[in-house]
Nucleic acid binder design. Structure first.
Length: 838
RNA sequence: GCGGGAGUGGUGAAAUUGGUAUACACGCAGGAUUUAGGUUCCUGUGCCGCAAGGCGUGAGGGUUCAAGUCCCUUCUCCCGCACCA
């Protein structure tokens, strides 16, 4: 069947979406596009099967469906493979694409192949460069010198999002180290609030897990910046004060020391005015700190370490002189790289204070009762009959609510009121202000690798940054002849002399191209818009067309992109909105995360072996594999391949297909002459299936379809027979439903039933309401909540009549015995519950 | 530690608003067809019990005529985040 139908479909192009006269309502169904790493694998097979069910479903429901496919074809694996085999990354990539494309074609996903795109084509990456320049114009792309994540194996920088929680690279697995480099960044932090707040729009339409991961990642903290004057002052750039961020300004009176991040500029500045002994100790400490890996640094259970800097700050609330320390539990790239130490109310500060003998002062009496937002005691009253709290002795910092003490004007206030009041006071005094801090960092997009989009910037002799004029785009990658692609810490493009050396577009003086390429997540941050017309050579996409199709109605892909790709795409969409190119602020209206396909309980990979998609298809056929993916369970759950049965799916498909062979009636036969019982089953299915598909209960739809096939089989073999109209009606319904899951079998059945291809373009049939009304239902009869018997009754049975019938049932009479009936609950027509006294 | 999710037969899993627990399938057992194997078809399959009947959705409690579903307590597993001030 596969060999038969593929060329027919190629010719027919049933899923093209370019008819300008098509006025049907639209749906944009998108699968996350694959990286062409080799051939398709089981994970692709699941994701594309599920996405295809959705696309085919909406088409069948009368929508004009855009379901495109492309290849995320820039990236490190191509380059690494090229180095290993000494070939051009282009060869490796495009050979893989060709192979995957053939596999995809065979897999029969309903793509519009006319819109296929490759991000590594100049006609695509030209628009990455255009996008970069737009961000640059808006001040959203900038260069800075900073500590970056460096992958020592791939010899390139990584975005924060690409560093795994254990401190290793998500690509090479290498332990990531910090390196100070000047790099390009996208200012995603400018959008932090919108990226966070707009998640609320996606509630219910995206998996809650992804929403919470994104919220977590953006990590907004609300609090205050507090300025501490530094005794003896500070040098240039610090203005004699150090600002700290705190979420607990209420505890300002309890700040007994200050801690700065050892590798911060601030620490260096502070220590420069200290005694030589202190400087020496600090230098030794800094060396120790920098020797530690990210993994060690992230271990929260590690004992605190640090050195005093011999300097002092003045607490703006108390006027007190407090010592300044450097300690590596303070991070240089969060907040201001400095914290106020409030040991009584922060566990980390307490651990530190206890280790180094620093004073601990309780400023919030957590024994004092606070009921909700309403104070139990009036402000100004301090309870004195409760036991003292002593975190210095217990080692446990005091969290939670309470009443302020030892805090001058704040005394007696609740925590929330104290925060409000202290911020007012700080703002009045000019020594602090309400503030927010984010965990989110700007997006580092430079990569020191070859196989990516060249950054369209030229560096003048004097260091001036000159954007490549738009009419000179794309900046094409040079040929690899004579280039050494091996990772060496700087971009291989820098060695392509003919390519890198260009005249300054402004005055013709010698200048050099930026040798770095962009993170490939830039490519995927807007690709869904390029599908409007991937061959458009005058613009990235037509805004009018984007307005008609986008945002994506249903996005399908793995949860591994919960942060990276989805966050970047959301950011770029908002930028494009602000620039007036799109009329929406969220790119993906709904998201489905399919689970993984596992083998032997673990994720399959080339190195570990496992199940091979090609082998599975050879053994069972495309349809059986696709059906197995749908039938295995809820789409978001993982599938253990050993637990499911592609052979069982094949068996079912054969059963369904045989029905089409058995049907002897003509297409024109009157449905209403058919077997009513079977017609009821068919129409119940017609009625139920759409809701089940829309709630992604594909496994349940398949189960119902199996029931329909069995019911039809019975009528053929031992009922009204193969000539009955209901048999044809049921079989046609089976073919229509199967076209979502098993396109070959469905098409073959459709042909046998006398129709031209393609079944995928034939609409879903409306159920006949008259056939949905059941002629009888089973009523359950319970005694004391336990099922004792059942009754077949009319759906409109009178409750009194139902109770009468129930009480006459011999099983009920026996069960009741001589017990007295206390009450009877009747829920006609489904249930009677006779409750006895006891 | 914080946040999210999940525990149902031998297995994957079903179960509108609380109203027949285990749909559908895999596996297994028996039978028909077949020279045989496979395919196909039929029957059975939650647990205990000869039966009547009893028990049964991780555990314990509660609400209710009625709980897989609601409430409280608790155990286990998975995922994400975590020295973020």
């Amino acid at each position: 069947m596969q060999e038969k139908w593929l060329p027919i479909w190629d010719d027919l192009k049933p899923f093209r979406t370019d008819d300008p006269n098509d006025t049907r309502p639209r749906k944009y169904i998108l699968d996350m596009f694959p990286y062409p790493s080799g051939d398709l694998h089981m994970g692709h097979a699941e994701a594309f099967a599920l996405g295809d069910i959705v696309a085919r479903y909406w088409r069948q429901q009368g929508f004009r469906v855009l379901h495109p496919i492309g290849w995320d074809s820039f990236g490190l694996p191509a380059e690494n493979a090229a180095i290993k085999r000494g070939v051009d990354p282009r060869e490796w990539t495009y050979a893989n694409i060709e192979q995957q494309k053939q596999s995809m074609r065979r897999y029969a996903a309903s793509f519009d192949w006319d819109r296929e795109l490759h991000t590594s084509d100049p006609e695509y990456y030209k628009w990455n460069q255009w996008l970069f320049l737009k961000l640059y114009e808006k001040g959203l792309a900038y260069r800075k010198d900073s500590w970056v994540n460096w992958d020592p194996i791939d010899q390139t920088v990584l975005a924060n999002e690409q560093v795994l929680p254990d401190g290793t690279s998500d690509r090479s697995g290498a332990v990531v180290v910090k390196k100070k480099l000047t790099q390009w960044y996208f200012k995603i932090t400018d959008y932090a609030d919108r990226l966070l707040d707009d998640l609320n729009q996606l509630e219910g339409a995206w998996p809650s897990k992804v929403l919470s991961m994104q919220r977590n990642w953006i990590g907004r903290s609300v609090g205050a910046d507090v300025d501490f004057v530094i005794e003896g002052g500070l040098g240039a750039g610090f203005d004699g004060t150090v600002t700290v961020f705190t979420t607990r300004p209420d505890t300002l009176y309890g700040a007994t020391f200050m801690v700065v991040a050892p590798e911060s500029e601030l620490a260096a500045e502070l220590v420069s005015a200290a005694t030589p002994e202190v400087q020496k100790k600090f230098a030794d400490y800094l060396v120790q700190v920098q020797k530690k890996t990210e993994i060690e640094r992230q271990d929260a259970s590690r004992e605190k370490s640090g050195v005093p800097l011999g300097r002092f700050a003045v607490n703006p609330a108390t006027g007190e002189r407090i010592p300044i320390w450097a300690a590596d539990y303070v991070l240089s790239d969060y907040g201001h790289g400095a914290v106020m130490g409030v040991p009584a109310h922060d566990q980390r500060d307490l651990d530190f204070a206890r280790k180094f003998g620093l004073p601990v002062r309780v400023v919030l009496d957590t024994n004092a009762p606070v009921t909700g937002a309403i104070p139990v005691i009036r402000d100004g009253e301090i309870p004195d009959d409760l036991p003292p709290l002593d975190p210095a002795a217990t080692g446990v910092a005091l969290g939670g609510e309470g009443r302020m003490i030892n805090s001058g004007p704040l005394d007696g206030l609740s925590k929330a009121n104290a925060i409000k009041k202290v911020i007012e006071q700080l703002e009045k005094a000019g020594t602090g202000r309400a503030s927010k801090t984010y965990r989110l960092r700007d997006w580092l997009i430079s990569r020191q690798r070859f196989w990516g989009t060249p950054i369209p910037i030229i560096h003048g002799e004097d260091g001036e940054l000159i954007p490549v004029p738009e009419d000179q785009l794309p900046v094409r990658l040079p040929a690899t002849d004579g280039l050494d692609l091996k990772p060496k810490g700087t971009s291989p493009l820098g060695a392509a002399e003919d390519w890198v050396n260009v005249p300054n577009p402004k005055d013709g003086t010698p200048a050099r191209r930026d040798p770095d390429t962009m993170d490939t997540f830039v490519d995927s941050s807007w690709y869904f818009l390029r599908f409007m017309d991937p061959h458009d050579d005058v613009r990235a996409f037509d805004p009018a067309e984007a307005d008609r199709w986008a945002p994506v109605d249903q996005y399908v892909g793995g949860v591994e992109h919960a942060i990276l790709h989805l966050l970047y795409a959301r950011f770029i969409t908002k930028v494009l909105f602000d620039l007036g190119y799109v009329g929406f602020t969220e790119p993906f209206s709904a998201l489905l995360n399919q689970g993984m396909v596992l083998s032997g309980g673990s994720k399959m990979s080339k190195s570990k072996g496992g199940v091979n998609l090609g082998d599975e298809i050879d053994a069972h056929g495309v349809d059986a594999i696709r059906l197995t993916m749908a039938f295995a369970g809820p789409p978001e759950d993982d599938i253990n391949w050993e637990d499911v049965s592609p052979a069982g799916s094949a068996k079912f498909l054969a059963r369904a297909w045989r029905l089409a062979n058995d049907v002897t009636s003509k297409k024109e036969i009157e449905w209403k002459t058919g077997d009513v019982a079977l017609r009821r089953v068919t129409h119940r299915f017609l009625s139920e299936a759409p809701g089940l598909i829309e709630s992604f209960k594909f496994n349940v739809v398949v189960a119902r379809l199996m029931e329909l096939v069995s019911a039809t089989r019975k009528v053929v073999d031992s009922g009204a027979g193969p000539a009955d109209a209901a048999v044809r009606e049921a079989t046609e319904t089976v073919a229509l439903a199967l076209s979502l899951f098993a396109p070959y079998t469905a098409e073959e059945m459709w042909e046998k039933l006398g129709y031209p291809p393609s079944v995928a373009l034939f609409g879903w049939r409306k159920p006949d309401p008259a056939l949905l009304v059941q002629s009888s239902v089973t009523a359950v009869v319970q005694v004391d909540g336990k099922v004792r018997d059942r009754l077949e009754v009319s759906p409109t049975v009178d409750p009194v009549e139902l109770e009468r019938m129930a009480r006459e049932l011999p099983a009920i009479v026996r069960s009741l015995g001589d017990r007295e009936v206390a009450s009877v609950v009747v829920r006609a027509p489904r249930l009677v519950n006779i409750v006895t006294k006891h």
